[in-house]
Amino acid sequence: MPRWLWFPAALAAAFIILPLAAIVLRVDPATLPALVTSPSALEALWLSLRTATAGTALCILLGVPLATVLARTSFRGQGLIRSLVLLPLVLPPVVSGLALLYTFGRRGLLGQSLDLVGIQIPFTTLAVVIAQTFVALPFLVISLEGALRTSGTRYEAVAATLGARPTTVFRRVTLPLVAPGLLSGSVLAFARCLGEFGATITFAGNLPGVTSTMPLQVYLLRVDDPDAAVALSLVLVVVAIAVIGFARHGRAL
């Protein structure tokens, strides 16, 4: 490696670390405890944790079968499906929110029928969970599919010749073998759920205790009460650091 690479590399690292340091330095330690434990902050935090947990669960429920089908089968149009499934990863979240609105909204593709049976999704906590799941699902699918491809099918073949039915093989061999990949995928999905903003505000709206998650609170407070916004941001930064550490640890297992 040429020695001069150190300089731009250090610049790149500083580029990421400096803003994070800036937000930490902006925190007033005297008021922090009060701001973080204020009823509105706790309400937002609790809502965020609940929705992100539900979103992650939904990601696992839907993502594990999808990743398995993508990794273990081949059919016409599979490449296209894979690309489309990964789309929310690169799509601006606002666009994701609009897409969800046109799907589950009152006049949306499915929303119209749902409305007839009395189910209305926008402005509910369920809408938050749906928005989070939509943007986080690709994270889980991509890491799990990679893990499945790496682990290969040899163990599954052995298990089958030992008399295990496909479901038994899936439960006792396939899933345990990719557990580290599933874990880090879930953690990443959880983090993405927790940080979701654009799709949520577009699709679910903003109401304290119902749809106003931490990022929405930060956005709302940033002008009128910057200290509170910074305090909440710090909480999100700390959670993000914990998540990254956990995901890296999981990968190393």
């Binding site: 609105l101 046109y102 909204g105 009152r106 006049r107 926008p122 402005f123 505000i201 577009t202 679910a204 709206g205 903003n206 109401l207 304290p208 749809t211 106003s212 956005y219 709302l220």
Partner: peptide, 21 residues
């Protein structure tokens, strides 16, 4: 008792024009 407290007038209008509010 609103279903949503939006950040701007245009966000309010977006929810109305889409028919969800």
């Amino acid at each position: 008792e609103p279903v949503s407290e939006e950040q701007s007038v245009s966000d309010v209008l977006a929810k109305v024009t889409s028919g969800d509010a």
